[in-house]
Design a binder for these strands. Structure first.
Lengths: 348, 348
DNA sequence: CTGAAAGCGCTTACAG
DNA sequence: CTGAAAGCGCTTACAG
């Protein structure tokens, strides 16, 4: 009782293998009677096509991979990735393309992931968030596989066919800082993202740009997007610079941690310190006070990434996409009434 | 500049395709000179083997799948799955077997996942937590693929070759209840797991068994493992039965929610109510008061699952595995000093 | 130790 | 509309 092949189907249906293959692949030029006979035979035999044979013959897979650089840090801890993947799944609904999730993190896993991709199991891939020094991206440098990055391109040798779907990181940061400024903040610190991340760097650059001459390295503290890192970073910032009156965090989770640290010091938000997050994750609405933040359309990034990849696979030349961010105003930057706004020049 | 094949390598190395294949597959009987020539040619050409051709010839994939029934609920919200997957990754370290994560949830995704498996992309699979009515398991009923379940077998038609790696759910529940009993609890409610889950049912049964005649449906409230569901369930329990003096929760997250609900009512733990969790997740040590719970060696489940699958793939007949749970004592069930223990018979 | 050849299960021009 | 045949890139007895 070995698995039936196309030859078995052809025999039962009384046609040739070629005809069976044609009905399998929906070629138009097949007689109704042949088509019916083949379908009957398939049903009767429980035939299912062998993907390896088909892929060998066609060179296609009908499958794409989702790469996550560090499963431990990203996939399981950061809701952003959940949204991203949901967006990708949205985009795949209704197609017959398979999605496989490949996880890096350790050296062995990175290597295995590259090997899997190299081996030709998939037609293309989406990289959810490459690192500045991403070993998986690096391993794919010579690959002919089309790849779309969710986020800015890393400064590495890239595969020849690559696209980018990202958000306006720089503009988002400027929006946040301008808002804090407008609310009367004078000494704005920043808690940045994971130093390995490409977008963390872009955001740091935007912060530096906005501050210009007033940029002070003491006011910047890197985190890793987690709540704990935000809490710890804020403590360090306050130890160094008790004069800061606002902090911009590169994720809502870090902002939540910052709120906690501020509370622990006996300080109040927004009375003593203004706080802004980034992401507009669900938690942002639930903190006390509710978090002002920069909304990024993360699910749409996922959807657009898949659309871009599918377009590339069908031979088109899709454009890169940069999605806009929006300011979300809640309670964590309430106006400081006693302060005069007349001396500060609004920016942007 | 089409991708080089084994024939190209053979030509460059001056040997036959058979010899190239033999060095590729580490067959012992190859002369050193031939081996060296082949390796040189591979390097020079940048040859990489075409997996489809190989799989077609051998029927093997060197890949296994991890199935997650509901990505939305499980993968991204429940740290248990993170631990499980980490265990699987532990077990794969050092092998060349690839791991692909397949996600179900919507009808389309379930169907696609089954199709992917059916198509023969992998050699076997690990199902992280099947539902009682799991559509993916159902779809695999006739499949020859070996499958290992992390958790009790669902009551469905199963693939012929299947194994189970689980924990002592029943014993764990009995441990928890016996502990609450020993601490003086007299009316013990339970907040159960997701009604679709196989293990939730097993735990509910154990609760019913332990209570025997005293079982009262009013004391049982299902949740979905989330913190919010624990909070809401406890509210409902307390509304119905203000007399309960202990609650056993089928997950630490639900126990955390229960603690919150209790606090919101102005009640105290353990003074007014004893609370126990299940899982021993990281959060259990951080709640206030710190949570008593039942530790389950979840990462080891993952490791054992992969070992079981690998054994099955190599033709062995590995046993099912049932791992023990242990009671973890912290602060949420502190002895109720004023109560006499003399009238209650300890159990187990 | 190694070559020639058959075979894995499909697809796809090519004729008709 | 359909059959016969070549080809996709490997592996593996079978001889030697």
């Amino acid at each position: 009782m070995t698995r039936p092949t196309i030859t078995d189907v052809a025999n039962v249906a009384g046609v040739s293998k070629g005809t069976v293959s044609r009905v399998l692949n929906d070629h138009s030029k097949v007689s109704d009677s042949a088509r019916a006979a083949v379908h009957d035979a398939i049903e009767q035999l429980g035939y299912r096509t062998n993907v390896h044979a088909r892929s060998l013959a066609t060179g296609l897979n009908d499958a794409i991979a989702l790469i996550i650089a560090d499963a431990r840090d990203q996939l399981f801890r950061d809701p952003t990735f959940f949204e991203l993947i949901e967006g990708v799944r949205d985009g795949l609904a209704g197609t017959k393309t398979n999605l496989v999730l490949l996880m890096g993190g350790t050296e062995a896993e990175d290597r295995r992931t590259v090997a899997y991709l190299d081996a030709g199991h998939v037609d293309g891939l989406i990289h959810l968030n490459p690192y500045l020094d991403d070993p998986i991206t690096e391993g794919l440098a010579g690959s002919p596989l089309p790849i779309v990055f969710c986020g800015p391109r890393p400064p590495l040798a890239l595969p020849g066919r690559n696209w980018m779907v990202t958000i306006q990181h720089r503009e988002g940061v400027l929006q946040a800082l301008a808002h804090l400024d407008a609310q009367g903040a004078e000494t704005i610190a920043m808690i940045g993202g994971h130093p390995r991340g490409v977008s963390a760097e872009v955001r740091h650059d935007a912060y530096r740009e906005w501050l210009g001459d007033r940029y002070d390295a003491e006011l910047y503290e890197p985190g890793d997007y987690s709540s704990e890192s935000g809490r710890d970073a804020l403590k360090r910032l306050l130890d160094r610079r008790p004069d800061i009156d606002a902090v911009f965090c590169a994720s809502d989770r870090m902002a939540r941690g910052a709120l906690e640290a501020i509370r622990n010091r006996g300080l109040a938000v927004p009375d003593d310190l203004l706080v802004m997050g980034f992401d507009d994750q669900r938690l942002a609405a639930g903190t006390k006070p509710a978090l002002n933040t920069i909304h990024q359309p993360i699910r749409q990034v996922g959807r657009t990434a898949i659309a871009t990849l599918m377009a590339a696979l069908s031979g088109a030349s899709p454009p890169d996409t940069v999605l806009p961010t929006t300011l979300v105003v809640r309670d964590s930057t309430g106006v400081k009434t006693e302060k005069s706004r007349s001396t500060t020049t609004p920016r942007m």
